[in-house]
Design a protein around this nucleic acid. Structure first.
Length: 388
DNA sequence: AACAAGGGTTTAG
DNA sequence: TCATCTAAACCCTTGTT
């Protein structure tokens, strides 16, 4: 059914790529739950649910993640805690553990630091995921890459006691999808000549960056598999998803991705809380101050200052409203963040007798960073190695 | 034409 | 029925240089 015009032959345009990159993607399995197993081994073998309690009622909140025992029974990220409790009510020993992000971050940092040394260049994507460019140290040879990858996997098990999944491929996209296809506790290599076969029959929704909304639109246009997407007319895709994203999706479906593995620096910080009860501005003024403080501290600790300060309101219908303001100078001052956020809340909630906006959750965001001068103790810091 | 600001949406973990 | 939290990237519109 799917007509494939994509032949093994390369496209004929210009510089035959200096590309023999080999990229390794590492993903710690059910990371938060595994961290909990690490400090409390008696949890092993039981369903574990990592919870974010909102404080509205003793059980209200959402599931952050769960180990595979719980997942197999239907507990997924994002579902209400109550629902997870229902699913697991007959499971003896099921554990509902409040998320302890600081602890996970500490463990993550230790491991990331040891991974960083094993890469030509390194990119931490999240608390439990990273890319390693291993082109040079593998001499662009997948046999060598396999040895390196397996060493890393074992080292993490032995030194840190954690299971992980590793994917290896010619770029970040393919390495990540290779890892996704192999988890948990997996290892998979997809070589350049295997990319097309690897991708073509997977549902489009499996492509990184294609979520539920995009998948639905694609399906409605007859695109069910990544192979379909790879040969779909580019102008149609541009029409559907925009001039940038349309063509990008098509390239991704072909397994193409030139994005380099590079250190990431934060571009924004935000903090959002759930209010005990839905409220308007006049009632949650006291909640804004501690939020401003947290962000100010974080800016000062990391050495950033932000020019843009914004607020976020989640309505009872779970719609998101945002307002922001950009200053002519960067700041990290608690008072300043608080004062501007308060101002924005006033404006957003209608100061002159309009209908009052009601919030379920409120938050503050700082963005548009400018680096503060100097910082001691960090060598990797000088940010001049930033090639874009 | 290029860029910045601002608000919304989508994705991911 | 119940629905966390953080961060990034993109889209579109509007306004400025």
């Amino acid at each position: 059914m799917l007509k494939r015009e994509t032949q093994p032959s390369r496209n004929s345009l210009g510089a035959s790529s200096p590309e023999q990159r080999i990229v390794l993607c590492i993903d710690f399995d059910y990371f938060f739950a595994q961290c909990e197993e690490l400090r409390n081994p008696s949890l092993k073998g039981k369903p574990i649910v990592i919870c974010v309690y909102s404080g509205r009622t003793p059980t209200s909140g959402a599931v952050s993640t769960a180990n595979y025992i719980a997942r197999k029974l239907g507990v997924k990220s994002g579902i209400p805690i109550v629902q997870a409790m229902k699913i697991l009510k007959d499971q003896k020993g099921a554990a509902f553990i409040p998320m302890d992000h600081e602890y996970y971050e500490t463990l993550s940092e230790e491991i990331m630091d040891s991974l960083r040394e094993r890469a030509d260049s390194f990119e931490q994507v999240s608390v439990d995921e990273a890319f390693l460019d291993i082109t040079a140290r593998s001499h662009s040879d997948y046999g060598n890459a396999e040895i390196i990858g397996k060493e890393i996997k074992e080292e993490i098990r032995e030194r840190h006691g954690l299971a992980c999944t590793i994917g290896i491929g010619p770029n970040k996209l393919v390495s990540k999808m290779a890892a996704d296809s192999a988890k948990p506790d997996g290892f998979r290599i997809v070589r350049p000549n295997e990319v097309e076969q690897f991708l073509k029959d997977l549902p489009v929704g499996k492509l990184i960056g294609i979520g539920p909304k995009t998948e639905k639109t694609l399906n409605q246009n007859g695109i069910k598999t990544i192979g379909h997407l790879a040969v779909f007319p580019e102008d149609k895709l541009s029409e559907l998803f925009g001039k940038n994203l349309g063509p990008l999706f098509r390239r991704m479906a072909r397994g193409e991705d030139n994005d380099p593995v590079r250190e990431r620096f934060p571009k924004q910080f935000s903090k959002i809380i759930t209010l005990k009860e839905n409220a308007s501005t006049f009632n949650f003024r006291d909640d804004v101050e501690p939020i401003a403080k947290v962000l100010s501290v974080k800016l000062n600790q990391t050495g950033f200052k932000s020019k843009t300060i914004g607020i976020i309101v989640i309505t009872p219908e779970l719609k998101t409203k945002t307002r922001s303001k950009t200053l002519s100078y960067p700041t990290s001052s608690e008072e300043e963040i608080f004062s501007i956020a308060s101002q924005l809340f006033q404006e957003a909630f209608g100061s002159q007798g309009e209908e009052t906006l009601i919030a379920r959750r409120i938050g503050v965001r700082v963005a548009n960073f400018e680096e503060k001068t100097k910082r001691v103790g960090d060598e990797t810091e000088s940010l001049s190695k930033y090639i874009l």
